[in-house]
């Protein structure tokens, strides 16, 4: 989503951009990165629009400011919505991508998108994500023509970042409000609360909507520690990728465990053979295909 696909008329003038995020902490819903940009010469007028950090504003005020900045012909904006499913999948991937990296990639994606439109970005302001200096260096290496300022509380220090935070926050709130729950046949209600793990309403919602086998509806970020805590009492799921990491055994151990659980065991099987790769002691052809002979069932 963005203001326009083509560069605005003023895009050839040196422009400043602010980037901010909404929904980084919550255990459910999307994380939204938003950016706002305008000609450097317009910055003083931007300050007079009274964007404050979106978190300090009331919801109606945020919505109002969002609508007014959308109408402002001297301002451009764009958002990147990263759904809970994508967040979970990345953070629980075989090669895990942490939230900081996802955040960095999202911010850089927004910068690239606006540059590709033909907007002459010369300065970009962002809030810290991880170590500020490392982040700044990373950004400079990727976009050498831009001056980057990575600062704590950027959203209250720079109006252009405050504006971005409003775009991000309003987009996140609307996305959560209109969220289409994919899971069916369950009494899924929408009283998620704020989505923050500490919010009693969110806690209650998680407790009500957990499923012994599937965990949670896909609105929930499974990679959050809160989820692990909630699912402790539910059905245990062991992943091949985790197992390899934890105990160094090959990835067939679970399949083995599964077979023995159903009463299939190899006659001569000892405890250690049960957790090591199936086809052990057999010819390479069978080992490579994890084919094991079952003599007792």
């Amino acid at each position: 989503m963005e203001s326009e696909c083509l560069a605005p008329e003023w895009g050839s003038q040196p422009c400043v951009m602010g980037i901010d995020e909404a929904g980084r902490g919550p255990v459910l819903g999307p994380m939204v990165y938003g950016c706002l940009y305008c000609p450097i010469s317009y910055q003083t007028s931007l300050a007079s629009l009274h964007f404050a950090d979106s978190k300090t504003l009331k919801e109606e005020k945020r919505e109002e400011l969002y609508e007014s900045l959308k109408l402002d012909k001297s301002i451009g904006w764009a958002v990147d919505v990263i759904g809970p499913r994508e967040l979970s999948a990345n953070m629980l991937a075989k090669n895990k991508i942490n939230l900081n990296e996802i955040s960095h990639n999202s911010a850089m994606g927004l910068i690239k998108r606006v540059l590709d439109m033909g907007v002459l970005l010369t300065e970009v302001y962002l809030d810290t994500v991880g170590d500020p200096e490392k982040y700044r260096v990373k950004l400079c290496e990727r976009f050498s023509s831009i001056k980057f300022v990575v600062s704590k509380k950027a959203d209250s220090l720079y109006p252009v970042v405050s504006g971005a935070s409003i775009v991000a926050k309003v987009t996140r709130d609307r996305a959560l409000r209109g969220w289409l729950v994919e899971e069916t046949g369950e009494n899924i209600n929408r009283n998620f609360g704020s989505g923050y793990p500490g919010d009693p309403e969110t806690k209650a919602w998680l407790e009500q909507h957990k499923h012994s086998v599937f965990g949670f509806p896909s609105l929930v970020r499974f990679s959050w520690g809160t989820c692990t805590t909630h699912l402790k009492s539910e059905v245990e799921v062991a992943w091949e990728s985790d197992e390899t990491e934890e105990n160094g055994f090959g990835n067939s151990s679970k399949r083995q465990a599964k077979l023995s659980r159903f009463g299939f065991t190899n006659k001569s099987e000892s405890r250690s053979e049960e957790i090591e790769s199936s086809g052990k002691g057999r010819c390479k052809f069978l080992q490579a295909r994890k084919i094991q002979q079952i003599t007792q069932f």
Binding site: S212, V213, V235, E236, V237, A238, W239, E240, S241, N251, K254, R255, A257, K258, R261, F262
Partner: peptide, 8 residues
């Protein structure tokens, strides 16, 4: 599935 669901 590439995992073991300890449930039957």
């Amino acid at each position: 599935l590439p995992c073991c669901i300890r449930f039957d």
